[in-house]
Design a binder for these strands. Structure first.
Lengths: 419, 419
DNA sequence: TGGCATTGTTAAGTCAACGAAGAAACGAAG
DNA sequence: CTTCGTTTCTTCGTTGACTTAACAATGCCA
């Protein structure tokens, strides 16, 4: 069957203009003319519409360039809000952001653990409502809720083959359930993808056209952004850098292959090696019963205190990550890489220089352009912020450029008479 | 500065409709309505325009589905032609294709060797003209010339840091020079990217949304296609799968890194290993003075004849390639892979099953969807065909969805008065 | 105070695409 | 053989986004 009219081109350039205003922070109408390529006349009417919608405000004047002074425009940051939720085994993080992507409220709660999905959904709805209430914001101004969790996610229903820690979530219709519980539009996505979008939306990623956000939590993933649009691949599972192979004869990975980055150098691998080193385990205060993330944090603290064994473990991990990042950059021809997620929030200072050095030294197109590596300003909550950014993006920048989906061309075409 | 009006949205849906007709081969107006999502009214006028332009013809009737019989539409294949040129160290291949991407003429000539670029350009112009003349086609009907060569290419001028064999081409303005010599529009691109486009254009790549064309000549590259649009990355050098790292401690590669796929398993590596094996070198008839491609072909022939040492060498190479392909598929979430280029034209039968097996066994999202692997139907000339397809694409499908280039947003914005 | 450059708005025209209604082609029932 | 319902395709008038062209508003500088 395949529904008709997938080409929703130019859903008014309102969205595009709004996006430029957001990216620029403060800009005049003339600035918009240059940035968008639209005419003054168009910008005039579009901006009037945005001001009437309450999304944009005039905030001052620029200095003269020889004639009339420009009127400066800005987002009305408190015009709309979005909720972002990061659902992980270890914990659930909620953020409330304004139009500009700035966090105006945040809470963290215990993770889903082994609880039943339906109960977790109820809890999430209550906790999200509590967050909105505590900040004292008109509920009407909340655009929606973005929910992200470790991939891979299937379609828009639940998650398909889940990582080992979250099996009970298979086939659970997460988005519809939460939508009913909250009464808000709900978007579901991969946490790494969300982190990338969050970096873009909150201005961290300058104007770089092609960016990867490396997300290291318990596993390692990446969100890919091309021209500010998330790249998802065939089934929405692009960016699985944790399963870049760095050694065809390496240790087995839970994904079924050998020598994956995650198996060689992910937090679990680092922690496993640290626990195996009796002396280090004692010095850093590791314990078999504690979570991987807790122990990874302990190893990182030990490294920062100068414990050589811990430092060496992390540097070894960083070198593997650097090589995998180079592979990713070579394949995608990246302009920038952002390190984000809880593990980089803790140990990013150790990883960053090693990754940058590797790219400067051996990135294939280094003669054409460098690959800049940055540490996220909000690595710990990047995914939740990105989840909120997803909502802002989808509500305010409705899927520009009508991408024609593949679609079945031939379908019911009757056979030619001559055949 | 930054030129204005980069958003050339919907340059008439003529191009989109034409693309659908091409993809479908034969289709009715109703079929177009379903495939594009446009209205019958729009399709009616657009198709009339295409017929008036001489690009499309009505070719018959379909059987009735209960009412009036549908009128079938097809491209007028001989309405326009395009020249594709593959410039390589080893040889230059010229093809002339019609609108449908079918080859109507082809010649091969000696490679550029150490000749001066200006002389090579003159020769290419003459040989291209000879090809068009020999087929007896009105020169007016030739849309342009696509020229592809081993990357990386810089901007649209020449090629930046060239592979070791083509140093003298640095900074030579290939496209403008050839444009002047031929009087035709000239497009320049990477040969792997062109191969991917060629596969898409000639219908080899069904409707798969996300495809990589692995191109193995002397080196290994890949062209990436997302929704039928080539993915280029930040500087047009995406798809460098030859420099996926499979062993951080492996042998040095000419790119400056270690353990690249190309260094471990590319044709040069295979040939080097074969030459080092005295017995095999004699059995296969290898020689130090001969080209890599000639000796790679010799090894492949030996393998097909059952020579165990040759077969083992190639299978080893295939396993490395398979692992690198898996990495690529994991990162991009691919739906399909096409093996193409001269080396796969010779040895593809050995590589294909090994790559397919690896993806079936260990592709990360294998539970969601498989990755199909195919051998190109025209592996030896895929790049040249793709070069011609580039011309068809650019002349007939002018860059749909106005992608806003990064562009400098802030530029001449004067400082706010309050600052 | 009067140029003069720059910014922003208004008005009229263009163009792609749409909806509705009509014309044309066809199978089948009377 | 006529009539009816169905499906295909075209014509016509409209919408909506955007453009060009003219105009109004603002502020620098002499």
């Amino acid at each position: 069957m395949s529904g008709p009219a997938r080409t929703t081109s130019h859903a008014s350039s309102k969205a595009a203009v709004l996006d430029v205003i957001r990216a620029a922070g403060t800009i005049s109408r003339v600035g918009l003319i240059n940035a968008t390529g639209l005419t003054g006349a168009t910008i005039s009417t579009v901006v009037r519409g945005l001001i009437e919608d309450g999304l944009v405000v005039e905030t001052g004047r620029a200095e003269s360039t020889g004639g009339k002074r420009r009127v400066l425009l800005e987002l009305d940051h408190s015009a709309r809000y979005a909720i972002g939720v990061h659902l992980d085994h270890a914990g659930i993080t909620y953020v409330l952001t304004n139009l500009g992507g700035a966090v105006v409220g945040r809470i963290s709660r215990p993770g889903a653990g082994a609880a039943k999905p339906a109960d977790v959904v109820e809890r999430m709805a209550a906790e999200a409502a509590a967050l909105v209430g505590s900040v004292g914001i008109d509920r009407e101004r909340v655009l929606g809720l973005g929910l992200v969790s470790p991939g891979p996610l299937s379609a828009s229903a639940g998650m398909a083959p889940p990582p080992p820690t979250m099996r009970q979530w298979s086939d659970f219709p997460l988005d519809t359930a939460l939508g009913q519980a909250t009464g808000l539009p709900v978007l579901l996505d991969n946490d790494a993808t969300a982190a990338a979008l969050g970096e873009h939306w909150s201005g961290g990623v300058d104007n770089a056209a092609t960016v990867a956000a490396l997300y290291m939590g318990t596993g390692i993933g990446a969100g890919l952004l091309v021209n500010g649009i998330t790249y998802r691949g065939a089934s929405g599972n692009a960016g699985e850098v944790g399963h870049i192979c760095l050694d065809p004869f390496g240790p087995e990975c839970w994904c079924g292959a050998r020598g994956c980055l995650e198996a060689l150098a992910g937090p679990s691998a680092v922690v496993a090696a640290a626990r195996a080193d009796k002396a280090l385990a004692r010095a850093a205060g590791l314990g078999r019963r504690r979570s991987v993330s807790a122990d990874f944090a302990a190893v990182s603290r030990a490294a920062r205190k100068g414990e050589p064994a811990a430092l060496e473990l992390l540097e070894r991990s960083a070198r593997y990550l650097a090589v995998a990042t180079r592979t990713l950059a070579n394949v995608m021809d990246l302009e920038a890489v952002v390190l984000t997620g809880p593990s980089f929030a803790i140990a990013g200072a150790i990883y960053l220089p090693i990754v940058q050095e590797e790219l400067d030294r051996a990135f294939f197109s280094r003669a054409n352009h460098p690959v800049r590596v940055r540490l996220s300003a909000s690595a710990a909550t990047a995914s939740a912020i990105g989840a909120a950014a997803m909502v802002l993006q989808s509500e305010l920048v409705p899927l520009h450029h009508g991408l024609r989906l593949p679609g079945n061309l031939v379908e019911s075409e009757p056979p030619p008479v001559g055949a």
